[in-house]
Write a protein that binds this DNA or RNA. Sequence first.
DNA 1: AGTATTCTTGACCCGGGGGTCAACTTCCCG
DNA 2: CGGGAAGTTGACCCCCGGGTCAAGAATACT
Lengths: 210, 210
Amino acid sequence: MRADAQRNAEKLRAAAAELFQERGLKVPLKEIARRAGVSHGTLYNLFGTREALIDEVVTGLAADRLDEAAEHALSFEKAGEGFAYYIEKVCELQATDPAVADVVSGRFPAAECLMAICGRTQNAATRIIERAQQAGAIRQDFTGEDLLVFFGTNALLARAVADTAPDAWRRQVAFLLEGLHTEPAQAPLSVAPLTPQQMYDVMGKLAGTP
Amino acid sequence: MRADAQRNAEKLRAAAAELFQERGLKVPLKEIARRAGVSHGTLYNLFGTREALIDEVVTGLAADRLDEAAEHALSFEKAGEGFAYYIEKVCELQATDPAVADVVSGRFPAAECLMAICGRTQNAATRIIERAQQAGAIRQDFTGEDLLVFFGTNALLARAVADTAPDAWRRQVAFLLEGLHTEPAQAPLSVAPLTPQQMYDVMGKLAGTP
DNA sequence: AGTATTCTTGACCCGGGGGTCAACTTCCCG
DNA sequence: CGGGAAGTTGACCCCCGGGTCAAGAATACT
């Protein structure tokens, strides 16, 4: 690769990182090129697809932050506190970085590496939930799918409130956590959790509009 | 108005009612015209704006259904049950009719009549909440704005799950209701409710993407 | 029936985003 | 330092949705 191409790729990566973080993974590619001070043809030439760009610029960071949150959640002595920490932390990541929000909401433009993160997050969520359930801290019928659905809606919510009341999403999180404690009644749920296949469909559509 | 124009208007109203209900208030106008078997020019000629069409076809029905839900909620003897009924009912309306969901999520293309409904719903929600709070059934710091935010996310969620697990939203509703009961601890919320102005911004953006 | 009025049509304009490619520029190496 | 390879550019294509309007079709009135 020639030296100037290398430089352009770097400029594009920088611009993409900025814009993805500011506005999510769906920013127009032409706008990324514009901010990089480069023709959009060059972007297509160097990266080919939006997914490739995402993978180089977002995937690693997002994966690290999500993995770290999961790890830390599992290190709490009290499983219930780890569970609460995890939810708050992931929601916070979503709120402060639309790119992460898009990653968690899964399968954006079907970038392969993103799917991997999604799966890892799903697994981590399930482990954290089961640990809390075994400790008797939260209701038994809450599932990893439930949590991912919540993350999906939280992504939308956090983006919607970002310019207005950047912490507004915390209220909803609090209500959810309150609803998951074991102390009170705990009426049985009348609807089954989503299957993995259903999760795939649903999260894709939830993300589809923004 | 000429007879054929009358007929066309009727065909357009019918098509619009169908499509709004199937896919929400943002369906392309050209598609409505297509389904009505009429040129899109005619649609613009007869109705001028999307808002006018919405007002003739959706507004009344949506208002009726929402008002009825509110009324019925206030007729419960136990305020807490009325509250739960109201949330379930509104969410159900949203789930079975994307048009209603868009109406509740407020301020679509700024149709005047829709704003009126929005205000009425906000008021109704507040009354129902306060009644439940006076009965000691739900936590004191839950507000009408909180509920509308929840409706906003539920609209997205319900639409996202519609083809896959049309009742999936009920789980989230259940978690919310569980979190609002008075029995357990009730940690104070660390974030203030939205102001009415903030609500306006937020709900507009939440609806913006889909 | 014939004319005046009202309506309808569909081609056309716009802007936005995705994507391609021939012609041009820049680089690098012999 | 010159020429071939590598890279860049921006005009161009697509589709989509909103919106307009001159020309033509349909109706209603006399």
